[in-house]
């Protein structure tokens, strides 16, 4: 083989290798953009696409299955996104699958995530529109996080002040927190609470028994609940009580009338109760009577010794 031929073979190998590498590179880049696979179109409408661009990926179950083909503004609040998705996905994506705009990692490119639908819904067809879900807006999230941070800052500052005050004051709370004996006491208390709770449990069991007995008509409560005769007696008693109550009510009404008369009328009783002059006069009279009564034995004694009445008193003694 002459030198020229060898050179040509080498050159051919060199050129073919370079061309093959070029084609391979184009193929890998192209397959990444779904250029060499069968695809179908899907649409989704969003209010905002958050910076989504043509060529961004479409994912289903975390796998890249297509790209964004076109983004067009339909009206002031609707943006329609056209997706080119691998044809195999026709067997998987359902009518109620939803499209959301997400991000590849924290800082990566925007993409559309298609979620799995439910089995009841039918499979999606070429050119159909997917339901879209509003995505989490990073700006919105950061704004909320900023607010939360500010609040946490205030709370932590307050907490620092409070803990500082507790430490400086050495007050009750400090003692509660630092005194180990309190902890011991607390442990005892917890033990007692445990015993109490056991007792409560026991009581609740007992109550349960009572209630079940009552349900079965056993015991006094059971009789009260289940005994129909007694219920009738009780009903009768209640009726009687009601009748008595009504009578009392009537009597009370009559008493009221009497009392009103007493209050308003000019009778003796009213005078006695309401007229303070009469009351005072009566009081004086009573005092006088009392005084007279005290003097009465002396008078009686004097009468006994009086010659006019002496005979009478002797006759009375003889009768005795």
């Amino acid at each position: 083989m002459n030198i020229e031929t060898i050179k040509n073979i080498r050159l051919g190998f060199f050129v073919l290798t370079g061309t093959a590498l070029l084609i391979l590179a184009l193929y890998f880049i192209g397959s990444n953009s779904n250029l060499f696979s069968k695809t179908f179109k899907l649409y989704a409408k969003f209010e905002t696409v958050n910076g989504l661009k043509k060529g961004n990926n479409v994912r289903y179950g975390g796998i890249d299955v297509g790209i964004i083909k076109n983004i067009e503004i339909v009206n002031d609040t609707t943006i329609r996104v056209e997706m080119s998705v691998e044809a195999d996905l026709k067997k998987v994506i359902r009518n109620n699958s939803a499209a959301t705009i997400g991000t590849d990692g924290l800082m990566g490119n925007k993409l559309i995530n298609i979620s799995a639908g439910t089995a009841e819904a039918g499979l999606i067809k070429d050119g159909e529109e997917l339901e879209s879900l509003a995505s989490l807006n990073t700006d919105e999230m950061l704004r909320t996080l900023d607010k939360t941070n500010r609040n946490i800052l205030v709370i932590s500052a307050n907490l620092r002040d409070i803990t500082q005050k507790i430490t400086d004051s050495r007050g009750t709370l400090y003692t509660v927190l630092m005194d180990t004996t309190i902890a011991e006491g607390l442990r005892h208390t917890l033990g007692n609470i445990d015993v109490v709770s056991n007792n409560i449990l026991q009581i609740s069991d007992d109550i349960n028994d009572v209630v079940s007995e009552a349900k079965n008509g056993k015991g006094l409560l059971g009789t009260l609940v289940k005994d129909t005769v007694m219920a009738e007696d009780l009903s009768k008693a209640v009726k009687e009580v009601r009748t008595a109550g009504e009578q009392i009510n009537t009597s009370a009404g009559e008493l009221k009338v009497i009392l009103e008369k007493v209050n308003n009328g000019g009778g003796t009783l009213s005078t006695l109760i309401n007229d303070t002059t009469s009351a005072n006069s009566l009081k004086r009279s009573l005092i006088n009577i009392d005084a007279s009564a005290k003097k009465l034995p002396d008078l009686m004694e004097a009468l006994k010794h009086n010659f006019l009445f002496k005979g009478y008193f002797k006759k009375q003694e003889k009768k005795k």
Binding site: A25, L26, F28, I29, N32, S33, G55, D64
Partner: peptide, 10 residues
């Protein structure tokens, strides 16, 4: 490498 490379790069 190829995932992050596009025709616009190549």
């Amino acid at each position: 490498v190829f995932e992050s490379t596009d025709f616009s790069d190549f």
